[in-house]
Amino acid sequence: MLGAGLAAIAVGAFGGLLLAPPDYQQGDAYRIIYFHVPSAYLAMQLYALMAIGSAIGLVWRMKLAYAIAAAAAPVGLAFTGLALATGMLWGKPMWGAYWSWGDARLTSVLVMFFLYLGYMLLHASLEERSTADRAAGILAVVGVVNLPIIKFSVEWWSSLHQGPTISRLAAPAITWDMLWPLLVMIVGAALFSFAVTLTRARAEVLLRERGARWARDVVAAGA
């Protein structure tokens, strides 16, 4: 899955940066969407994964679900940071400013960034692992309220950030030769992030069960 993801990212980046035509208004600067959109998309997907994992953990006390939530958090944080950074780099030449306070989309994504950070800090600061899982899990579940706000912020309120291009009811407002590398990038980023999350979750489970016989056996086998 990791290999397929990296391959798709390579193909998408090649298609987006070299094959796709320049935009009629933005020229070549628009090509940052090939990194910005997949990052933002995965940042939200991983938050949903983290929150669902936490919710399952809270209700059914399933340790594996907690481990997946804890594993997803740093990956999601990285993608959120990437989405914010690429957006700011694009915003400076296009809007005329790196950042604009008051824009609902920008602010709600920044809130998600701090929710990820808060989850990780809370989780790391509590000594007892089950307490840490529960406390950070509640924070993750509470933060789910932010997801629809991010998604619909550009539709509910007037904003500086443009509206959705792909995920709308009408046909995508982008030509096919510009769209396909973006779709490949999204698939690649999804495969990559889920592969990294699963690898991290596996390490997390082994770390948590380090006292158990089976975990020692797995580590000893070098798998």
């Binding site: 320049p22 935009d23 208004q25 604009s100 443009q162 407002a173």
Partner: peptide, 18 residues
Amino acid sequence: DEVLARHDENYMPPEVAD
């Protein structure tokens, strides 16, 4: 004291726009 450009959600090559 500040003027920002607002981009719309349409992307297309120059030939298509023409």
